[in-house]
């Protein structure tokens, strides 16, 4: 039974979409997207984490461009091996990688407005996932009916920018949820101070990390467009990062009336 390393876990209603790495030659890997037989997403509770090595039996899936990585899979079984973040990134660096916008999906990126996210024509995309080292990142938080959602602006190694990427990375979604919960507990408005925390303390941790790597994925085609998403953002956030918020909580935050 083939073995893969789970590299990406993204939020996809009603559960999670995953991508794994399978060997592609001696020293390199390629991405595959194991999916349950009847849907795209694995339902909650989903007990796996990034870096988990799993066995899964694949069956051919009906492939629709540009999601050529899709595979139908029965259950996922742990092998017991787990890669740490650094080792996972070393492998991701041997899989699909681009240092610029043009190389991400093998076609041009389109945009509907000068500050909006990019999309591609599904028929032109060569793949639906690609890794990239990045120089810098800035977060923004938007409201939608299910709550606050994180978006990011990412500066690639070429100094080209990916604007307004929805962050669908499960770990970052959980991090935002923790942040929102902290605000609620302290009756603190999710204000510009919180954005300062994200865009100063958190981005500084990212910029200083040797594991500065992102994976950009494509959403399923809708009305002739596949929108870009931030599938994985390394380093992954940890609960410890929120501790640096404490002084700000005590001193600066604006209390709700």
């Amino acid at each position: 039974m083939p073995e893969i390393i789970i590299s990406d876990i993204t939020m996809m209603s009603p559960g999670y979409c995953i991508i794994g790495l399978e060997p592609d030659g001696r020293d390199s890997f390629r991405s595959v997207r194991p999916m349950p037989f009847d849907r795209y997403a694995w339902l909650d509770p989903f007990m796996f984490n990034r870096g988990d090595c799993v066995r899964c039996q694949f069956a051919p899936a009906v492939l629709r461009a540009p999601h050529f990585e899709d595979r139908q899979a029965r259950s996922l079984q742990r092998t017991g091996s787990i890669l740490n973040e650094g080792d996972l990134i070393r492998r991701l660096e041997t899989a699909e990688v681009s240092i610029n916008l043009e190389g991400l999906f093998g076609c041009s990126l389109e945009s509907d407005n000068p500050r909006g996210n990019f999309w591609i024509d599904p028929s032109k995309g060569q793949r639906s996932i690609c890794g990239c080292p990045y120089h810098n990142i800035r977060f923004r938080v938007f409201q939608d009916p299910k709550g606050l959602r994180l978006r990011a602006e990412l500066v690639l190694a070429s100094d080209e920018r990916l604007r307004s990427l929805p962050v669908v990375d499960r770990a970052w979604g959980q991090f935002l949820a923790q942040l929102v919960k902290l605000c609620a507990e302290d009756k603190i408005t999710f204000s510009s101070k919180t954005m300062n925390f994200l865009n100063r303390q958190v981005t500084e941790k990212l910029r200083k990390s040797p594991n500065r790597f992102a994976r950009i994925g494509l959403a399923r085609a809708r009305e002739g467009k596949c929108w870009l998403m931030l599938d994985s953002l390394f380093p992954q956030p940890t609960g410890d990062w929120l501790k640096t918020l404490e002084p700000a909580r005590n001193r600066n935050w604006q209390k709700s009336p």
Binding site: N113, G116, R140, Q143, L148, R149, M195
Partner: peptide, 25 residues
């Protein structure tokens, strides 16, 4: 959809110059 909503807010931010317009809502 949420993509369109972000587009509206970004557009208004462009027009008005109000930074982080509507964020969070």
């Amino acid at each position: 959809d949420s993509m369109g909503w972000v587009g509206i807010l970004s557009g208004l931010e462009d027009i008005t110059g109000v930074q982080d317009f509507g964020n969070p809502w």
